[in-house]
Design a protein around this nucleic acid. Structure first.
Length: 313
DNA sequence: AGCTAGAGCCGCCATC
DNA sequence: CCGATGGCGGCTCTAG
């Protein structure tokens, strides 16, 4: 596969944490140089992070013309419009088909460039309503951890940027490669649910919960028919209450979560084995290959066979 | 592609 | 009074 150029845009007052994420992910040794990452100055003059570190860049905005993926980390001040040259460079990059990605408040810069109009997008939950108010044409989803609209991707607050960058690796090089990078970084290869879990419970409970155990059990038993009544009984809750608790912790409904996990399991089997699609469907809890294809297509936007051809090593 | 039985989901409301 | 709970009814979605 060709080497993929990733450019992260730096500017005065950029948060160091978010600025550092793309480099940490895309320059991982395990990726074997599949990406080349560089830091690009989004505005003239000396640049420092919000914490005062001096930023050394590889060049100016003209370098975006050669980038396949452009990443805009959190913007410093919502009351200040991005530099006009950055605005134009983003719009132009999008026009020529580059992949444009925002972390956290970077979504405001994308929206400003008109890239998010008519698309779904997310940002830090504390500023999601502001984004929606300023840009009515953008469909803001404050509950998502990140949103993939193909050539335009946005992520929620701060650390969700890691989830999004890992998602890009998964999209480009498959689940196994994303897992490897996640292991090296000691982060979850895929966090389930959306921002809800962080809003509702800033501090996750330290005691193991019956619901957590049940989630874990479900992951190990995806091939079984998992019904609400059984799952609820397993943690001694009514169905009604089970669904409520489930949504509080994962940000999604039991069935939607289950389908996502099953598709994910199917992806791994497609990559790692030569099993026929029909068998993989069974093993992952889909009644038939047809059902697998339906949900696989919705989640991955590819057919199982095409996915296997692209990622099987 | 359309049909149907059944499951999932969720607003509503009485209850604790 | 409040928040948590759980049953009901009906709409939506899924699997076959």
């Amino acid at each position: 596969m060709d080497m993929h150029r990733v450019a992260t845009v730096a500017y005065r007052g950029a948060p160091a944490f978010e600025l550092a994420i793309p480099g940490e992910v895309f320059e991982q040794e395990a990726l074997g140089g599949r990406y080349r990452h560089e830091l690009v100055a989004g505005e003239p003059g000396a640049l420092r992070t919000s914490s005062g570190w001096r930023i050394a860049t590889d060049g100016g905005l003209e370098r975006l013309a050669a980038a396949d993926t452009i990443i805009v980390p959190g913007w410093r001040d919502l009351d200040e419009a991005p530099h006009p040259r950055l605005h134009d460079a983003l719009a132009e990059a999008h026009r020529r088909g580059a992949r444009v990605v925002s972390l956290c408040l970077g979504a405001f810069a994308l929206a400003d460039a008109g890239i998010l109009d008519g698309r779904r997008a997310t940002t830090h939950w504390a500023h999601a309503s502001e984004l929606a108010a300023r840009h009515p044409a953008v469909e803001v989803d404050a509950a998502a951890l990140y949103i993939d609209e193909g050539s335009v991707l946005t992520s929620a607050g701060v650390a969700a940027g890691i989830d999004l960058c890992l998602h890009l690796v998964r999209r480009d090089h498959g689940q196994a490669m994303a897992n490897t990078v996640a292991r090296r970084l000691i982060v979850a290869a895929h966090r389930d649910g959306g921002q809800a879990q962080y809003i509702e419970r800033p501090v996750p409970p330290l005691t193991p919960s019956a619901l957590g155990d049940t989630l874990q059990w479900m992951l190990g038993n995806l091939e079984r028919p998992l019904e609400l009544a059984d799952l609820a009984a397993r943690c001694h809750l009514s169905i009604r209450q089970f669904v409520r608790r489930f949504k509080d912790t994962t940000g999604t409904t039991p069935y939607a979560w289950l389908l996502e996990q099953r598709v994910r399991a199917a992806q791994e089997l497609l990559e790692a084995t030569d099993l026929p699609v029909e068998d993989i469907a069974r093993r992952c809890g889909f009644g038939t290959a047809a059902v697998l294809r339906l949900h696989f297509g919705r989640n991955v936007r590819r057919t199982p066979t095409a996915y296997r051809a692209a990622f099987q090593s």
